[in-house]
Design a protein around this nucleic acid. Structure first.
Length: 878
RNA sequence: GCCCCUGUGGCGGAAUUGGUAGACGCGUUCGACUCAAAAUCGAAUUUCUACGGAAGUGCCGGUUCGAGUCCGGCCAGGGGCACCA
């Protein structure tokens, strides 16, 4: 009985609340005429009317087109541009709302703002669509762009659409080809053999995400590692500079700087050679030379020359190497795979003991790092420990917490930590760091090894064996070798007539495209059919936004006016690769004398994801998920609308199509208006954290939009009288909201605005109150621009609020003259009292001791000490 | 596996950076208005309590007059790991 009543209430509310048309049609509220003559025809704000009207007004006034010749201080606000998947998702809305608030705020504070938008338009999904639906990647991508652009416009972002770009247009990627040729000239581009995931059934190269449990995602065939000749960019040449530059990026999150630091991975170690029992020598690199007496075997990568040599005479070794080639190429796969090894029968002579250590081929040793061979110290490296345990190799201890623990056994795992050296001859008793220095010094003195700095960072492989990317502008000639396409023949344009029915690279099997004459000798030659990694496209788009000459990638002077980007905002998932590649590209351009700065992004902000709870039912062995709009949500339960039955409420997780826990921005904007959605994106959760989407939350935002609208309706230009407390609150709010927006703490700014709204509502009519309403309009305008424009027009504001300045603050009104002092006894709160701001310590102490509650707590004990923090607290210690 | 981050009421979170834990919002409960509902407005809302207080910021320990905040050790969730973007 009770439940059915509640259900009814809920459903009627859910269906009626944002339906504006019905409210407006009934219109039982009298129209009210404001003293300034503007008529407020309804007590409801109607976004379905207002949003479009103001979006058109901004566009007609060309408010958001950046003028590089403006005398105002420049501000470049940039959000990571989206991949045009077809629909924007709510995560984009959150990202772009944050940037939009900052951009609008910057305009209000007198800046000339560049806030552009474009499309990271090359990539695999377009080819997948081509294969699945038979649509051309170009048509598919441009249709998606049109769609998403319309969606973004409906949210009212203050974007300069005149600078829009798409990386898949030759007008963009042609310039990228020119820069690639410049990099080649500068010696920063080269070719080498490198491994790819090869699908032997589809005869195609797979991306890591297309390899599932070591199998091809379409064919299901076991993936092989295969070597191809590929293009590389010499990012390692800038390793040290990229690392040092991090120190100056004070406005980047520490976690991102730390992640990049670890990624670049400078390490100091020892490189030396083992004499092998077969007469050859084997170079190894170790970051732990101190543990050299703990080495119990030596291991080489499966593609190491020593392994290859053994394979030519031992077919078991060859089989083992073949086995290592199965499975994916990612580090995570390699490191979690079971440790496997093959004993080559070769011995390696220990430089100090002269003992011969067995040499293994091991699947966990990487050819790309160091020398591709290691001295294995199982006691003090977990991977080596697992390997030694499996193959019954000795696990000597050479580091212990103290000399007495020299014989202590291992507790099932390696000990990689600090300690003193034991069982290590001349190193015994030394700390780890001292022992490292000592071993390196001896190796250098005796001439069998040297201290070396090694970087974890590898060169950037940019070759992709795919169609939908920037063609690499080179030609292969049998006579002349690899020849760059002359710049006057750029852009090398993708052919349109391609076939996606056959697997593999369409460029490779295109009948004519690749056949060209050699630019050097004029003989028959072939185009390079690899295209560039899409990370190349996103490594310079921020330059193209700042200046778009037709004949070159960018204009140096124009770029200098806007760059570096004042605030860059995007997902934490780009913390390493995209951001590192963009930093590298900028440095490379600087190195070639084309730019005057090294760091493209002065401040970086990484925002959290938008999440949602999931709804599911178990049907037999599988779980069936339901979308939020199929569900009616009660306090404790969720019911399926179709059959009224209960469904399980799952954890709040990242929105994904497979879990069906997505919401469509278009639908919610249509239902609640752009401003309520924008407000929700900014409310509650700190922007760097995940934001849980909820129906109740957006309903709350919708109600606040209407609450503000009613408040704006109470503006009375003829009101008189002063309200000191409200005036103070208003000015404190202006200052606080400005500070919060500048710190991107939008959730705090939102809370301040709720407080101010509450204070104005409670205040009696006065000139101060009307001024506070006017101020509130200005303060919410970056966040809810449509509502603000509508309110601004209603109170008779001058022009568009989008062009209005941020209200000034009277600093004298920011300080309180009275403060609340906490009185503690032994650190526990006993009482509070009010005192004038800046009251002397002695007064506070006396007042505190006079408190009855404090005296009761002290209960006659001797006061040993009194700690007074002015304007804050008094703590009495007994 | 390796690197990085996060953890505070029923929920999202705030806390002047070592100084009154729970601002603000959501939800819930009660009340007002209404024939009734919606909308709106008002009040309450960490837990326990003998109504004096006591406990409390993932868990265990430490430093301090005082710890959500600093240190050490765990646990749980998330991001990245080089061809998803």
């Amino acid at each position: 009985m009770r439940r059915s009543r509640r259900q009814r209430c809920r459903s009627s509310r859910a269906s009626s609340s944002p339906r504006l048309a019905t409210c407006a049609a009934r219109r039982w509220f009298p129209s009210s005429i404001r003293p300034n003559g503007v008529s407020m025809t309804d007590t409801r704000f109607d976004p379905s009317q207002a949003d479009g009207r103001w979006q058109r007004a901004w566009e007609e006034a060309r408010c958001f087109e950046a003028d590089s010749n403006s005398a105002k201080p420049k501000s470049y606000v940039l959000e990571m541009f989206p991949y045009p998947s077809g629909r924007i998702h709510i995560g984009h809305v959150r990202n772009y709302t944050m940037g939009d608030v900052l951009a609008r705020y910057k305009r209000m504070t007198g800046h000339e703002v560049l806030h552009p938008m474009g499309w990271d338009a090359f990539g695999m999904p377009a080819e997948n669509a081509a294969m699945e639906k038979g649509v051309h990647p170009d048509g598919w991508t441009h249709a998606n762009i049109d769609n998403m652009k319309a969606q973004l416009k409906r949210i009212g972002f203050a974007l300069d659409w005149s600078r829009e770009l798409a990386t898949c247009d030759a007008a963009y990627y042609g310039h990228e080809q020119a820069m690639f040729l410049d990099l080649y000239e500068a010696g920063l581009v080269y070719r080498k053999e490198s491994e790819v995931n090869w699908d032997p059934v589809d005869m195609t190269v797979l991306a890591n995400e297309q390899v599932i449990d070591g199998k091809g995602w379409r064919s299901g065939a076991e993936v092989e590692k295969r070597k191809l000749n590929q293009w590389f960019l010499k990012i390692t040449q800038f390793a040290e500079d990229l690392l040092d530059g991090l120190g100056k990026l004070e406005n980047w999150p520490d976690k991102v700087r730390l992640m990049q630091e670890n990624w670049i991975g400078r390490s100091r170690g020892l490189q030396f050679s083992f004499e092998l029992s077969d007469g050859e020598s084997l170079a190894v690199y170790t970051t732990r030379p101190d543990t050299i007496f703990g080495a119990s075997f030596v291991a080489v990568a499966p593609d190491h020359p020593v392994a290859q040599r053994v394979a030519t005479i031992n077919c078991d070794a060859a089989k083992f190497i073949e086995q290592c080639k199965r499975g994916g190429t990612t580090a995570a796969e390699l490191e979690t795979a079971e440790k496997l090894g093959f004993d080559t029968g070769i011995g390696a002579r220990h430089p100090f003991t002269g003992e011969y250590l067995p040499v293994y081929i091991a699947n966990f040793v990487l050819m790309d790092y160091g020398t591709g061979a290691i001295m294995a110290v199982p006691g003090h490296d977990q991977r080596d420990f697992e390997f030694a345990t499996k193959y019954g190799l000795p696990i000597p201890r050479v580091v212990a917490s103290s000399a007495e623990d020299a014989g202590k056994p291992f507790a099932g795992e390696a000990e990689a930590g600090e300690g003193v050296l034991v069982n290590s001859q001349f190193l015994d008793g030394m700390e780890v760091e001292a022992a490292k220095r000592e071993v390196i010094a001896r190796a250098e003195k005796d001439g069998w090894g040297q201290g070396t700095t090694v970087w974890r960072l590898r060169d950037w492989g940019v070759s992709r064996q795919r169609y939908w990317g920037t063609p690499i502008p080179f030609i292969h000639c049998a006579e002349c070798g690899v020849v760059p396409v002359p710049k006057d023949q750029l852009p090398v344009v993708l052919p349109e007539d391609v076939d996606f029915k056959t697997p593999g690279n369409p460029l490779l099997r295109h009948p004519t495209w690749k056949h060209v004459d050699c630019p050097k000798c004029g003989g028959k030659a072939e185009r390079e059919t690899d295209t560039l990694d899409t990370f190349v496209d996103s490594s310079w788009y921020f330059l193209r936004f700042a200046s778009q000459p037709a004949n070159k990638p960018f204009d140096r002077e124009e770029v200098a006016k806007w760059l570096p980007v004042e605030q860059y905002i995007g997902g934490i998932e780009h913390a390493i690769l995209h951001l590192l590649y963009a930093r590298f590209w900028t440095r490379a351009l600087q190195h070639m004398g084309q730019l005057d700065f090294a760091e493209p992004f002065a401040s970086l902000f990484t925002q959290g994801m938008v999440t949602h709870e999931t709804y599911s039912r178990s049907e037999g062995s599988k779980t069936v998920y339901y979308a939020p709009d199929e569900i009616s949500r009660e306090a404790e339960r969720a019911l399926l609308k179709d059959d009224g039955g209960e469904v399980e409420i799952g954890r709040v997780i990242k929105m994904s199509k497979s879990k069906k826990n997505t919401v469509d921005p278009d639908e919610i904007v249509a239902k609640y208006g752009a401003d309520a959605v924008r407000w929700f994106m900014l409310s509650d959760s700190p922007p760097e954290r995940d934001l849980p989407w909820s129906e109740a939350g957006i309903e709350g935002c919708w109600r606040f939009v209407q609450r503000l609208w009613r408040l704006f309706g109470q503006f009375d230009a003829a009101a008189t009288g002063e309200d000191k407390a409200l005036l103070r609150k208003t000015h404190q709010t202006i200052a606080a909201v400005a500070e919060d927006i500048e710190a991107l703490s939008f959730n705090k700014a939102v809370a301040r605005l709720y407080e101010l709204t509450g204070a104005i509502e409670k205040a009696q009519p006065s000139a101060t109150r009307s001024e506070a309403i006017r101020t509130a309009l200005l303060l919410v305008s970056p966040m809810m621009p449509h509502l603000a424009e509508e309110g601004w027009a209603a109170i008779g504001g001058d022009g568009l609020i989008a062009n209005a300045p941020w209200p000034p603050v009277d600093p004298a009104l920011l300080v309180e003259d009275e403060v609340t002092i906490a009185i503690q006894h032994m650190g526990k709160l006993r009482d509070t009292l009010t005192a004038p701001k800046g009251a002397p310590k002695e007064d506070l102490e006396a007042l505190a001791l006079a408190s009855e509650k404090v005296q009761r707590s002290i209960d006659g004990a001797t006061v040993r000490k009194v700690i007074v923090v002015p304007d804050r607290l008094v703590n009495i210690v007994t």
